[in-house]
């Protein structure tokens, strides 16, 4: 069994509205996530990606189907806190995740809840803040930080719990380009250097390009998945569902349409320049 195993999960919010059929927010999703993977889940608002994220740490439980985290069923209430220690969840709005008035005290919140020994908490807090590059700000007040800095503190708050996997629900949606870059490079570092399993929920395709695997969701279902190369070369499919594709992929796709011979769809600036160079040779 995969490290996180999602098996045929269905879920709907209990909105009893007359005349409207109850629509499943998540509608039969099966997905496995392995240790050390960097998985990006993309899709429109309302496609079920955020709902799915909350299933990974037992914040929501499936109406039908199962989610297993490291072999534990999330529906088992006695395992809820063990699961939240294994899978940490970072939310969209950085302001509403920071609960203490001092950065380091906020990061300590998680381990404090777990009853960790004070000396050990200190070590974990310092280490977590260093991992996200916010150690120098440990005595600052959260409300004086920039959006990207706040979100990095929120990530540190989860790291201090020492989970095996970190799930982020649109962590960059409210950030400016600089903040987005800060958060993304932090995630890549955690994944590459610490072998942390990362599940990034996002609607920015340029963030998804950085992942090992991209899962595209639409109307509660998985539309397609694969490596970024495999997914973003399906330009037509993504366009039909009005999802973004890298401009380089779009250009290549249109050139193919005119009969130009291109064997690999370029996703980055570098690859595209190389591709165009070869084509124009």
């Amino acid at each position: 069994m995969a490290f996180i195993s999602i098996e045929n999960v269905e879920f709907s919010y209990d909105e009893v509205e007359e005349g409207k059929p109850v629509r499943n927010a998540v509608d039969g999703v099966t997905l496995g996530i392995e240790r050390g993977e960097f998985v990006a889940v993309i899709g429109h608002n309302g496609c079920g990606k955020s709902t799915l994220a909350k299933h990974l740490n037992a914040m929501l439980l499936p109406d039908s189907g199962k989610v297993y985290v490291d072999g534990d069923d999330t529906a088992d209430e006695s395992k809820a806190f063990k699961i939240r220690e294994t899978v940490g969840l970072v939310l969209q709005n950085p302001d509403n995740q920071l609960v203490a008035s001092i950065v380091e005290e906020d990061v300590a919140f998680g381990p404090e809840n777990l009853g960790v020994d004070p000396a050990e908490i200190r070590v974990r807090v310092d280490e977590a803040l260093k991992a996200v590059g916010m150690y120098e700000y440990r005595t600052h007040a959260p409300h004086k930080l920039s959006g990207g800095q706040k979100q990095r503190v929120a990530i540190a708050g989860i790291l201090a719990i020492q989970p095996d996997c970190i799930v982020l629900d649109e962590p960059t949606a409210m950030l400016d380009p600089n903040g987005r870059r800060e958060v993304l490079s932090t995630l890549i570092k955690l994944n590459r250097e610490r072998k942390m399993t990362v599940v990034l929920i996002t609607h920015y395709m340029d963030e998804a390009v950085l992942a090992d695997r991209v899962v595209v969701m639409d109307s509660g279902k998985i539309l397609t998945q694969g490596t970024p190369d495999e997914v973003f070369s399906q330009v037509e499919l993504l366009k039909i569902h009005r999802l973004d594709v890298p401009q380089s992929a779009e250009l290549a796709n249109r050139l193919i349409g005119c009969g130009v011979d291109i064997d690999r769809i370029p996703l980055t600036e570098e690859d595209c320049v190389k591709m165009l160079g070869e084509v124009l040779e």
């Binding site: 380009p177 380089s248 250009l251 600036e269 320049v273 160079g277 124009l280």
Partner: peptide, 20 residues
């Protein structure tokens, strides 16, 4: 100054730099 022009603009700029 920390502002990135669109990917397609950068690509075409580099193509121009290569003499196309």
């Amino acid at each position: 100054i920390g502002l990135q022009v669109p990917q397609i603009t950068r690509i075409m700029q580099r193509l121009r730099g290569m003499g196309y």
